[in-house]
């Protein structure tokens, strides 16, 4: 079998200056990998996508329409599985990563009718960004190469980075600095994320309730006077705190 020419594709991805040329290169790479369809992007609400996100696909238009109209993206089993995995996986292994609901089984069955019976997904998660993936799909694995999965890593990784670069140059996304906190403010933020009230935070940190309140207020101001739930989500999103900080330690 002819070796997969990753050098060519990595060079083309590096040269891409707009989404159109990236789309064309990614489509060609998808074909050479032995797949037919690709979808690369951040996981967001597709009905009202935020600005500055990556979303590039050659999935069948009526399938995309159905994904958006029926809100399939919110329950997408592939996306759900990708949050459980730092490494790439084949779609037929999804059942071992998450427990599939009836609706998720229905989504997989419907996707198969649009030529997406099988495929693989490469996560491209970056701290401080929406979760991202690059997926490759096909009606069957007949055309798959021996080295398709490792090669898909290279294609997915470099294509996603090219897309991030193009998006960055087009928008101000990602240039807003993440707020920084003192270690005490950070500790207060973690207790807040664990559902503690100011008085409890004071006790846990061995400080007065009023001092705990000041720490909490500082964090709120740093996030534009955000309410507690919103600022905790923002802090998780920015990578200022992690799920481990809030749930495991």
């Amino acid at each position: 079998m002819r070796k997969f020419d990753f050098n060519y594709f990595v060079a083309e991805f590096a040269k891409a200056t707009n989404m159109e040329s990236l789309h064309a290169t990614l489509e060609q790479a998808t074909h050479d990998l032995g797949f037919r369809y690709f979808a690369m992007g951040h996981h967001v609400d597709l009905a009202i996508p935020p600005e500055g996100i990556v979303r590039l696909t050659n999935y069948h238009e009526s399938w995309i329409g159905q994904i958006v109209e029926e809100g399939f993206f919110a329950d997408d089993p592939i996306h759900a599985a990708s949050t459980k995995s730092l490494v790439g996986f084949l779609w037929h292994d999804v059942g071992s990563l998450i427990e599939l609901s009836d609706r998720q089984k229905q989504i997989l069955e419907t996707a198969a009718k649009f030529g997406l019976a099988t495929g693989c997904t490469i996560p491209a998660h970056i701290p401080g960004e929406f979760l991202g993936t690059c997926s490759f799909g096909a009606p069957s694995l007949d055309q798959l190469r021996d080295d398709s999965l490792p090669a898909a890593y290279i294609v997915g990784g470099f294509a996603f980075e090219a897309a991030r670069r193009i998006v960055r140059r087009k928008s101000r996304y990602g240039t807003e600095p993440t707020p920084t906190f003192t270690s005490r403010q950070h500790e207060a933020l973690i207790w807040m994320g664990r559902g503690k009230a100011d008085s409890e935070i004071g006790t846990l940190m061995g400080i007065a309730t009023s001092t705990a309140h000041e720490h909490v207020e500082h964090v709120r101001r740093a996030y534009g006077n955000a309410q507690r739930v919103h600022l905790i989500v923002r802090a998780l999103f920015d990578g200022v705190v992690t799920f481990t900080d809030l749930l495991r330690r």
Binding site: F4, A14, P123, H125, I126, D147, P150, F160, R164
Partner: peptide, 22 residues
């Protein structure tokens, strides 16, 4: 480890694979 590839690339410097991952 290829699980880190995206983060290594996202640092912004120019990277080139030397072979397919194994």
């Amino acid at each position: 480890d290829m699980g880190w590839l995206s983060q290594i690339l996202a640092l912004g410097w120019g990277c080139m694979p030397l072979g397919l991952p194994q």
